[in-house]
Amino acid sequence: MKQKVIVQLVDTLDLGGTERMSVNLANTFQEQGWESHLVVSRQSGGLQNYLNPEVQVHFLEKKSFKDLKAFWRLSKLTRKIKPDYIHAHSTSIYWAVLLKMLVGSFKLIWHDHFGLSDQLEENKRSEMVILSKWIDRFIVVNHKLLDYWQKLLPYRKNSIVYLSNFPYLKLNESIQKLPQFTFLNLANYRPQKDQLTLIESCKILDNEGFDFRVLLVGQQVDSNWETQIKQKISEYSLQEKVRVNGPSEDVTSLLAEVHVGVLSSESEGLPVSLLEYGLAKLPVICTDVGNCAEVLKSGELGQLVKVKDPKLLAEAMKHSINNYEEEVGKAQQLNQYVLEEYGALKFFESYQKLVGAVK
C-alpha cells in the first residue's frame, strides 16, 4: 500500500494550543506510518523541540499575506512533495485555498481551532462560505463550532466533523513536587484567558493567610494584557505569590512539579492545556466554557467554576489545598478518561475515516 503523504500548514511553532496540536498531529502521523510534513508559515518557536526527528519541517519565512516569494516557496514545495492531504490550521486556510486553486491535486482539510466559541456571532467569518467550495473536510474542536458551521453551511453538513484535541506528552514522574503548594495556569497572555480573575482569587487566598504559589506560563500575545496582569499583581502586593513567566520549553517537567492545573478562561474551544493537566494526573480547576465540562464530566473529574467569578474560583483553590488527596483521586480518574477518550490513537482512527471518505 502506498504511504500516505500529509502536509500541515501552521503559522508558527510558538507555545499555543493550535501550534501544540499541529506538533501532536505531526508526531502521530509519523508514528502511524505516514510521511509527515509540517510547513511553518512565519516563525519557529519552543514547540519545535517537541517534534519527532522523522517529521520533515519546512519554513516559509512569510512576512505578510501578500508575500509572493513565500507563497511561491509553498507552491514549489507542494509540487515536489505531491501530498495526498493538506491540513491547514486556523488562518492558514486562506493560503491553502489559494494553493488548491493553483495546484489542486490534493485533498484539503481545514482545522478550525477558533477559541472564542462563545462569541461566534461577533466573529462570523462569513468569507468561509465562499472558500468552502475548495475545502474537502472541516474539523472543529468543540460542539458550538460544529453547530455554527453546519447551520452556516447546511449543504456541507456531512463534511463538517468534531474531533477533539488530544495531548501528546512523555512525562517524567520521578520529578519531585515543589515545596510550596503551586497552581499552574498554562495559557497565553490575552484577554480570552482571563488571568486577571485568577489574580483576584489569589488576593482572596492571600488575605486569608493561605500559603501557596501561582505560576502563569504562556506566550505574550497581547502585550497590553500582560502589562495589566503585572500591574494587578503589584497593586495587590502578590509578587511573592504569583509569577509571570514566558513560554516554557519544558512543559513536561513543569506539569510534574506543580500541584494543581488552573484555567480561568472566559472562552475556550477544547483547551489542550486541560488535556495535558489530565495526562499529567494534576487536579484541575477550570471555568465552565467550551468543552471543558465534557472533559471533566460536569465536575466529577475536576472542579468547574463560573466565568469571571473570583470568589468561586478562590473557593475551588482553597478546596484543592485543604482536600488535596481527594482531588488527586479525581485526577487519577481524569487521567484514565483522557487516555481513553482523547488519546492520539483514537484521533488518528477517526481521522483516517474522515479523510478516507473524501472522493
Rank of each mutant, 00 (worst) to 15 (best):
M1D: 14
M1P: 12
V5S: 01
V5F: 02
Q8L: 05
Q8T: 04
G17I: 02
R20S: 03
S22C: 00
V23T: 05
T28P: 00
Q30T: 13
G33C: 01
S36T: 08
H37S: 05
R42E: 14
Q48W: 10
Y50S: 12
N52D: 14
Q56P: 07
F59S: 07
K62H: 05
K62L: 05
K63M: 11
S64Y: 11
F65E: 05
K66T: 13
F71Y: 08
S75W: 12
L77T: 03
T78N: 06
R79P: 00
I81R: 07
I81Y: 10
I86S: 09
H87E: 11
A88H: 01
H89Y: 14
S90L: 15
T91I: 13
I93F: 09
W95M: 12
W95R: 10
L98Y: 14
L98S: 14
V103Y: 15
F106P: 00
I109C: 06
I109F: 08
W110C: 10
W110M: 11
D112Q: 05
V129E: 04
I130C: 02
L131D: 02
I135G: 01
H143V: 04
K144W: 07
L145M: 04
L145V: 04
Y148I: 07
K151V: 01
R156T: 13
R156E: 15
S159C: 08
I160E: 03
L171I: 02
N172A: 06
S174H: 11
K177F: 02
L178N: 09
F181T: 02
L186D: 06
A187S: 12
N188Y: 06
Y189Q: 03
K193M: 08
L198I: 01
I199H: 05
I199K: 03
I204T: 12
E208G: 15
D211C: 10
F212P: 07
F212W: 11
R213N: 14
L216A: 05
V221N: 09
S223E: 02
T227R: 00
K230N: 12
Q231E: 13
Q231M: 06
Y236P: 03
S237Q: 08
L238Y: 15
V242A: 02
V244E: 06
S253V: 09
A256M: 12
V258G: 03
H259M: 08
H259V: 08
E268G: 13
E268V: 12
S273L: 00
L274Q: 00
Y277V: 01
G278A: 05
L279E: 04
A280I: 04
P283E: 00
C286T: 07
N291W: 07
C292S: 10
L301D: 04
Q303D: 09
L304T: 01
P310G: 00
K311W: 04
L312T: 15
E315M: 15
M317C: 14
H319F: 14
I321P: 02
V328H: 04
G329H: 14
K330H: 11
Q333A: 10
N335Y: 15
E341C: 05
L345N: 12
F347Y: 15
E349K: 15
E349I: 12
Y351S: 10
Q352F: 11
V355G: 03
A357G: 10
